[in-house]
Design a protein around this nucleic acid. Structure first.
Length: 350
DNA sequence: AACACGGGGGT
DNA sequence: ACCCCAGTGTT
């Protein structure tokens, strides 16, 4: 592959004019960059912004994060998804307090060793917050480079990522690794768009782009098809007592670990079977009307939910179950987005 | 190398 | 209704 002309001058000039104004760019401390980068993993900027502002008000320092209780931490992440991100953020914060006096280390390998910080995030924090000459190759950058070099290897293949990382570093100006990395990602987010519709007329690198020259920009990047989702029937019981709605804590590992949900069984149950399951847990209920069937799609599973409303005496509950009134549902217990369809009902009263 | 892990946007 | 997006940790 012949070398490509330098991209940094045009790229950085474009970035200086087109960078979005974002809260973590206004005050790019290592902690701000760290939290924003974790939030932005698999998450669009628009979705992360309100979470970021609320987070920094609640937990302005790494030490505040290290000392936060788990329930409050989950609540700050409620609806963002991939909840292991927030647990790893706190694990890492505790290590940073123990090992590094509460300051993130300005060292790529030490960053990479922290929970939740992998190749991409170590590179983003290292280059943006500490000005280290390291790569930060996310999906945007893979897309930009697949087109710049007109390269049709599968971007999900680690070998491809390694090759692109090499190219990224060949173009990185030593005096501006952070702006360069940010500019590549910003170009991918604003101009070199996915879904086969890049805005080449607005691209500062169009004159260098080999896909553009070959007319292949709409077919890149190439990636192999994802595996089909598993369909999972789910029976949900919305049980109300005088003390609120019945909630159940999910197991400490696996999907939606440690979060709260209405009573549910991950199988299709008849009305009678559902009541029997609750009774065998020591919770006796009177079943009411059926719930509107609802669907929730995770990347790997599709939940098809149906079930019933029910009422119960406000009796003592087994471990892992609580009665949650409207206030505690709003302030304390974290319900994942999967139950969005039942939120309005849960918020009626309790 | 394959899989587990959420949620949102576009058409 | 169906498509796409894509970091880190575990196995």
């Amino acid at each position: 592959m012949p070398t490509l002309s330098p991209i940094a001058p045009d790229l950085l000039a474009w970035f200086s004019q087109n960078a979005r104004i974002l809260p973590f760019r206004q005050d790019p401390t290592p902690y701000h960059i760290w939290v924003s980068e974790i939030m932005l993993q698999q998450t669009r900027v628009a979705a992360a912004l309100e979470y970021y502002d609320r987070w920094m008000k609640a937990l302005p320092t790494i030490r505040d994060l290290a000392e936060c209780d788990e329930e409050k931490l989950h609540k700050l992440w409620e609806g963002l998804g991939y909840y292991s991100r927030v647990r790893n953020l706190q694990k890492a914060a505790r290590i940073v307090c123990q090992e590094y006096g509460g300051q993130l280390p300005a060292d790529h390998k030490k960053l990479l060793a922290l929970p939740g910080i992998g190749d991409y995030t170590a590179g983003a924090i290292g280059s943006i917050a500490f000005h280290l000459p390291v790569p930060a190759v996310d999906g945007n950058v893979l897309r930009v480079f697949s087109r710049l070099y007109n390269d049709d290897r599968d971007i999900a293949d680690p070998k491809t990522k390694k090759a692109y990382t090499q190219w990224v570093m060949e173009h990185q100006p030593p005096e501006a690794p952070g702006p360069y990395n940010e500019a590549l990602m910003e170009l991918g987010a604003l101009v070199c768009l996915p879904n086969g519709e890049p805005l080449c007329d607005a691209c500062p690198l169009a004159h260098l782009c080999r896909a553009r020259q070959a007319g292949t920009q709409n077919t890149l990047p190439v990636k192999k098809a994802a595996k089909a989702r598993r369909i999972q029937p789910v029976t949900v019981l919305l049980v109300k007592s005088e003390q609120g709605w019945l909630l159940q804590r999910r197991p400490d590992s696996g999907l939606l670990a440690g979060l709260w949900q209405p009573a549910l069984f991950e199988e299709e149950l008849s009305r009678q079977e559902a009541a029997d399951r609750l009774a065998s847990l020591g919770i006796s209920v009177q079943l009411g009307g059926p719930l509107k069937p609802a669907k929730h799609i995770f990347s790997h599973i599709e939940w098809r939910m149906s079930g019933w409303q029910a009422t119960a005496e406000a009796a003592p509950l087994p471990d892992g179950y609580v009665w949650a009134d409207r206030e505690s549902l709003a302030q304390q217990y974290t319900l994942p987005g999967a139950f969005k369809a039942y939120r309005p009902l849960l918020e009626t009263d309790g």
